[in-house]
Design a protein around this nucleic acid. Structure first.
Lengths: 348, 348
DNA sequence: CTGAAAGCGCTAACAA
DNA sequence: TTGTTAGCGCTTTCAG
């Protein structure tokens, strides 16, 4: 370990002023003689000089720092998103700092404050669940933020700031249509956590579509899930008892759980029961089950979110957060065909 | 969005000098009158003042910033570790920035440089695979680092800097002993990636132990895996053909893959074949399979790594990286009993 | 009890 | 072609 070298030291060693050294090392258009340039660069390399970005940021008024706050980095969806966003940022010369809010609103607040303290150029935020139910706090903080903010995935209506996410209702609809087309007439649906707006919207789209196709309410079983493997596993018996010929799960993990239980019960998939999941996490995790599922294109989400934020940064956008007219971009999910959906038994 | 408020503005608004405001807002022992203190605090709150940590760091010479570089944040093990480390840092008043090297050595170098530029107080590094095979580059960079560095999990011998990781050989030994005690005499072992030193060490410990117990070489089948679900799945047939009564997989994902294939083949677990995995990722992922596995205590790893780094930071340790005598801490993995190991068939 | 002033490492306008 | 100077926002001595 070694003391940190400053620009002044490089300048001294190269027998020039700091200004000259700065000009050269930043490749600024100037008419410094070639020999001098070379000398400065050589010294800088020899001394392992690295510019102090904080000091630089102080004067240039931009840190080229972007922060990302995710509720849970252990969640594969957020982990993938982080990776994609990091790539986007890097491509544009920004550095991304990832942080974890543990889905805790207090921590989220603290992180945001910390990041503002670090003078970030922009914030990508996936809000905690709590911030859904009580938006006031978050809203205030966003309005008081000195940097642009884009909300991702968990969209909290457009009156706060710009947001990019998926059309969850459409996702539910796609699942419903697929099953209806396959001739199913008796449905089951496992929801996510109670307060997960996204999961609820998926369900809503699913049920709405069934209703529009005049499926009677008593042919539909809705069960509370927990977004986890056990949620699907535990619900499977009820689904079977109900005599459903198909099942829509608000995420893949629950679908896997249900499949596991069905297998134990000797129920064949898709022969006896068809299953659709959500997320296509199965593929990402490297499992081999070819689950029919609704996929959300994570890299598109990342790309769009970044572009949205970047626009604001470039326009030096000092008045968009909390404006009346904010952009809300809804990306379309896609149904991915696997091996877990078949024609309804009665039609065969 | 709103312009950023500076200390000067707070001071002006409160009719005091910046020095006074600084003293008060940092709770420095001073004899500023209570009324003045209150006035300053009120103004600061009203204006949403947040201290500029970069400017502060410039003068205090500490940023309270810690960086973590992981090879792949989508890997559940690293994701969990990140979470634990973040908690440790926060507890001690430091902020953790997580970054992803994609297991790419060039990117790793860039990230390290960037972080040094941000004047971090310490770096937690899980090196890329490439840095195993050619340590020279990384070594140079570590030696030239102005901040303490602790290497985590992928230990690259102790001559570079301090490291904290797990005793992978012991892990392999634990698995072997468990199976030997259960009376097994015909073994299979699925390795990880070729260049994964950790996985290889697990195998080494496993095979070494068998050898020490005089298991003949022709009673042991070793197969190349890929650390993924498919690796276990694809290897399962060979394991069955070989007539092994037990199988050790260098990670859980491959164990799950093997189990899946065995199930298809009508081979009962653990009746026909016993299986031990590694990582206990199954539990973390929320699956219900009670896999017997070798668990690594991630939160202990985080805690020890942080403590190691923190010691260096506190001792203002300007000469430990690349010193001759560095600490290498090996934590002990533990065998977690599940339902996938039974007495060898022949003994029943 | 409070303020003035120096300086952290850097960039940018302006001189020379 | 290069150097001087001011200032980014903050902390910290030292005076008053």
């Amino acid at each position: 370990m070694v003391r940190r070298v400053t620009l002044r030291e490089v300048a001294q060693e190269a027998q020039v002023s700091v200004a000259t050294a700065s000009l050269v090392l930043n490749n600024k258009p100037s008419r410094i003689s070639q020999p001098t340039q070379q000398r400065i660069r050589d010294v800088a390399r020899r001394l392992h000089y690295v510019v102090n970005e904080n000091a630089r940021g102080l004067v240039t008024n931009e840190t080229r720092l972007i922060a990302l706050i995710v509720p849970d980095i252990e969640n594969m969806f957020f982990a993938s998103l982080s990776k994609c966003l990091e790539t986007e940022c890097r491509r544009n010369g920004y550095q991304l700092f990832i942080s974890n809010s543990d889905d805790d609103r207090t921590l989220e607040r603290r992180l945001m404050r910390n990041f503002v303290g670090r003078d970030i150029d922009g914030l990508l935020l996936i809000p905690s669940i709590d911030s859904y139910t009580d938006r006031a706090l978050l809203r205030d903080q966003i309005c008081a933020s000195p940097c642009p903010i884009v909300i991702i995935d968990r969209l909290i209506t457009a009156d706060i700031c710009d947001g990019v996410g998926f059309d969850n209702e459409l996702g539910g609809r796609l699942a419903a249509k697929k099953l209806l087309c396959a001739g199913h007439r008796r449905f089951a649906c496992i929801t996510g956590n109670k307060d997960s707006v996204n999961a609820n919207t998926r369900c809503y789209g699913f049920l709405k579509t069934l209703q529009e196709h005049e499926v009677p309410a008593d042919s539909i079983l809705t069960l509370d899930g927990n977004y986890r493997f056990s949620g699907g596993y535990d619900a499977a018996d009820a689904v079977a008892d109900f005599g459903a010929t198909c099942l829509f799960c608000c995420n893949d993990l629950m679908a896997l759980g249900a499949i596991d239980r069905f297998r134990e019960l000797g129920i064949a998939i898709p022969a006896d029961i068809s299953i659709i999941g959500y997320d296509n996490i199965v593929k990402r995790f490297g499992l081999l089950t070819r689950l029919t599922t609704v996929e959300q294109n994570v890299s598109e989400l990342a790309s769009q979110s970044w572009q949205c934020l970047y626009r604001h940064i470039q326009h030096h956008d000092s008045g968009r957060n909390c404006a009346e007219a904010n952009d809300l971009l809804l990306l379309e999910p896609q149904l991915v065909e696997g091996d877990t959906v078949a024609q309804a038994p009665i039609f065969r």
